[in-house]
Design a protein around this nucleic acid. Structure first.
Length: 817
RNA sequence: GCCCGGGUGGCGAAACCGGUAGACGCAAGGGACUUAAAAUCCCUUGGGAGGAAACUCCCGUGCAGGUUCGAGUCCUGCCCCGGGCACCA
């Protein structure tokens, strides 16, 4: 019996020859030290032969440390990087920390310690864990978004948008989380609740900074067609941008006011029997008749106080109020009533709709409730109103009667456009990006307010605007940042006129930090520029980006937007930062997402400690398809360890044993394995690549064909997956290179694939009746002749005539009788 | 409601372009080695029926149909699970 220092039982050679014990802890520590000392993972950034920028989504350094989901993601990405290096690319694989933001701040609040003191401890833990997992990280280029040398440029970025008119300030109803005491982006509101703490979100009206991402909606959408991204991610982004084609139509009041509505169904304009404005619509006041004023005011107040949950999600029952005034339907010329109702949202379209109760479920509900006229303008045989389908013909639409919906829509828009009361319009669901946060833990927005000059940009030479270390970093419900309690910090002269000014006390959204970090990585050592032009030209855009779909919308959309802006202002030469993106799956535990609140977070440390990083890495990859994720159970780790033990023993046997001839079938299998592992690793199908290596090892053992030359090839295949293990065995098998990662990936020799025998399935009428083992490439005649001799086949052919024989070369023969 | 995934043994999963369903691994059972246990090695393992046995047959990829010589894979209509969006006009 043998045990290593951790108490782990280890194998001896299967024939009891003495083989040193595979002790991952020792090997892994030694190789990690060697990599650091030899600068193995530090590519030449200035003149790389074949630059390959392998990017993974950087973590936020939570107090719990790296969890198993992070390790799954990073391992998958690291395998990709290591493989790319082995096939001859100069791989740059950086890592960093997205350490600003509400996660970190909330934890700091709970502990009562300033995040500026707490975060470095968390980062230290992450750094240690990232080293331990054996990633091919270039530690020279590690970054943290909380470093003033980083956020200086985040602030610079803000200023570029500000100067271009893409950052603006407006008072807006925003999502307010009463528990976290902060404004949330729409994207951070899930079912009307704060995505962090689950508290119901309220509406508040505050002055906020916004970025005009909506100006880029069309480009952000159109470019998706040109990106090599996981389909799932593309679908999420498309959905989020939400393009709708339709028309804007103008309804006029007798007094001449114009109410513009957006509709996707201009074909139904003859059925518009009333108008509905959002309660906050700017025209509401002037359109309200005197006698309706009290009721309208009361309704507006009621809507405002109702939380966003009720407005957005719940409440089947429609509510609304008549304004007491009318407008003309531009198609029918009829006078129709104007209402307000909270089912119409100010943020979408024009904040006003033409209601077509015959052909819209919501309008139908509302009209029924308030007894408003419902008119049929689209007829579908055998269907009752409301008819939503566009597969009908227009009726009650005068000269347009009888047309199909689509054709009708075109003609009606053209007809209204002639009279200046309509035009076609593309509408997006995307909203502008609110980047203000009334919090402490973020980069201060670099603006100074001056009574004379208005909001003035902090001069670039004065960046960074450093976040001061304050004791009272706790937010309150005043709606202003904790920084607003520090006059000594915010009272500064106006950079423009020199009179008394006041700093912006809000900080920016974490998503701004992460919207450009990939530009910073190659240039971390430059203190005088955000990203060096030469380095950027060499390394960007990112070659492969790997990350989770939880960032499919926010992070990826914002990064694309920021890159487009930088392109438009001449700072970079490309507009898509991530031409190739692969989404990995989610690791769940017992069917549920891992979260602190569920208490099901799995920390990898104990596993890495017990089994070694290599075993745990491979185990995570063997769990299921990388791009699908899976449920974490630790029941299968032994399988991977047994596999590595077998390879370990084979390698040691091969070193001492005399080199014998390799059986041909082992050689064939070897080249099949090289082919499969190459293809699967390239396409991120790591689970099946591992299975293929296991199959090969099983065969080598069965044939007792351990051999240095062939084992070296196996070690190379294994290297991306188990890097320390591979280094150790490569050296053992006589590798003279400084690292196995400086060797070239093995190539498939087709001549070995051609040989060997195949098993051909023989079917009668599509049912399997026997198998033939033959040399590759047998002709149909030969196979049919042999098949007819088989007992199982004879029995079912039963003397009948073969009507047809279908032969798929080397695979299957089907006899039809 | 709309948009993505997905449904295959006791479990995680494989299956190229429609061509031998269940590779690989876990767990389980049996055996070898051992004083014993662990480790290791060998065998069995989708369900059912028959046979002393070598074996043989039938059924089987969420459900119901269809296309095809042949369907886990393609088509039509459903059911269920996961994720995203959602009073978006």
């Amino acid at each position: 019996m043998t045990r290593d220092t951790s108490g782990q039982v280890c194998v001896a050679s299967r024939d009891m020859r003495d083989v040193p014990i595979y002790d991952p802890a020792a090997i892994e520590a030694a190789w990690q030290a060697r990599w650091a000392e030899r600068r193995t993972n530090e590519p030449d950034l200035d003149s790389p032969a074949r630059p390959f920028y392998n990017l993974m989504m950087f973590p936020y350094p939570s107090a719990e440390g790296l969890h198993v989901g992070n390790m799954f993601a990073f391992t998958g990405a690291d395998i990709h990087g290591r493989f790319q290096r082995l096939v001859g690319n100069t791989v740059f694989e950086p890592i960093g920390y997205d350490a600003f933001g509400i996660h970190s701040e909330n934890y700091a609040l709970a502990r009562g310690i300033n995040p500026a003191k707490l975060i470095p401890q968390n980062i230290a833990t992450f750094r240690r864990q990232l080293h331990r997992m054996g990633g091919m990280f270039d530690w020279r280029h590690e970054l943290s978004t909380t470093d003033p040398g980083y956020y200086r440029w985040t602030q610079w970025l803000f200023l570029q948008l500000f100067k271009a008119g893409l950052a603006y300030r407006k008072r807006a109803a925003v999502n307010w989380c009463p528990k976290d005491k902060t404004v949330l982006a729409n994207e951070q509101v899930i079912n009307g609740q704060c995505e962090r703490c689950g508290t119901a979100v309220e509406q508040r009206s505050l002055d906020q900074w916004f970025f005009r991402i909506t100006e880029y909606a069309g480009r952000l959408l159109d470019n998706l067609d040109r990106l090599d991204w996981s389909e799932s991610t593309v679908a999420l982004q498309r959905n989020w941008i939400g393009r709708s084609e339709g028309a804007e139509l103008v309804f006029r009041t007798p007094a001449g006011q114009a109410i513009t509505v957006f509709t996707t169904r201009p074909d139904t304009v003859f059925g518009a029997t009333y108008l509905v404005l959002a309660p906050e619509h700017p025209l509401v006041d002037e359109l309200t008749a005197a006698e309706q004023r009290p009721a309208v005011r009361a309704y507006q107040r009621a809507v405002q106080s109702r939380d966003i949950v009720a407005r957005r999600v719940g409440e089947k029952k429609k509510t609304g109020e008549f304004l007491g005034s009318y407008a003309r339907n531009p198609a029918t010329d009829e006078s129709i009533p104007i209402w307000i109702a909270d089912y119409v949202l100010m943020e979408y379209g024009t904040g006003a709709i033409m209601a077509v109760p015959g052909h819209d479920t919501r309008d139908h509900e509302f009209a029924t409730q308030f007894k408003l006229p419902i008119r049929e303008v689209v007829r579908v045989e055998g269907e009752q109103l409301p008819v939503i389908s566009e597969e009908g013909v227009l009726v009650n639409s005068r000269q347009f009667d009888g047309l199909g919906c689509r054709e009708g829509a075109r003609r009606i828009v053209a007809w209204l456009a002639e009279r200046g009361v309509g035009s076609s319009k593309v509408q997006y669901r995307l909203h502008d990006w609110c980047i203000s946060r009334q919090r402490y833990w973020g980069p201060p927005i670099p603006i100074i307010y001056c009574d004379a000059c208005g909001p003035v940009a902090v001069p670039e030479r004065d960046l960074p605007v450093e976040l001061p270390l304050i004791e009272d970093f706790r937010p309150d419900d005043s709606g202003v940042s904790p920084l607003a309690r520090h006059t000594e910090w915010y009272n500064v002269p106006c950079p423009s006129c020199g009179k008394a000014g006041r700093r912006e006390t809000d900080v920016s959204d974490t998503f701004l930090d992460s919207s450009w970090y990939y530009l910073r990585y190659p240039s971390t050592e430059f203190t005088d520029r955000p990203f060096d032009p030469a380095r950027t030209k060499t390394w960007l855009p990112v070659t492969t980006y790997i990350g989770g779909n939880e960032h499919a919308v926010l992070h990826l959309l914002y990064s694309r937007f920021i890159t487009m802006v930088l392109k438009d202002f001449g700072h970079v030469e490309f507009e898509e930062p991530f031409p190739k993106l692969r989404a990995h799956g989610l690791i769940v535990k017992d069917g549920a997402k891992m979260s602190k609140s569920r208490g099901n977070v799995v920390v990898p440390d104990a596993y890495v400690q017990q089994w070694g990083a290599d075993t745990f890495r491979m185990y995570l990859m063997f769990l299921g398809p990388f791009q699908e994720g899976g449920d974490f159970r630790d029941t299968g780790i032994t399988g991977i360890r047994r596999f590595l033990d077998k390879v370990w023993v084979l390698a040691h046997e091969a070193v001492t044993a005399a080199e014998g001839p390799v059986p041909p079938e082992v050689l064939t299998k070897l080249h099949q394995t090289i082919r499969k592992v190459t293809a699967d690793t390239e396409s991120l199908n790591y689970n099946t690549a591992i299975a293929a290596m296991m199959e090969y090892v099983n065969l080598v053992r069965e044939k007792d064909a351990a051999n240095k030359t062939t084992l070296r090839r196996l070690i190379l295949l294994l290297a991306p997956y188990a890097p320390h293990f591979a280094e150790e065995l490569w050296a053992l098998l006589g590798g003279t290179e400084r690292s196995v990662f400086d060797v070239r990936w093995p190539e498939v020799d087709e001549t070995f694939l051609a040989g060997g025998s195949v098993e051909i399935a023989v079917q009668v009428n599509g049912k399997l009746r026997g198998r033939l083992v033959l040399g590759r490439g047998a002709s149909e005649e030969q196979v049919v002749a042999l098949a007819l001799e088989m007992d199982g086949v004879k029995k079912f052919v039963n003397g009948g005539k073969i009507r047809k024989a279908i032969y798929v070369q080397d695979r299957v023969l089907n006899l039809v009788v």
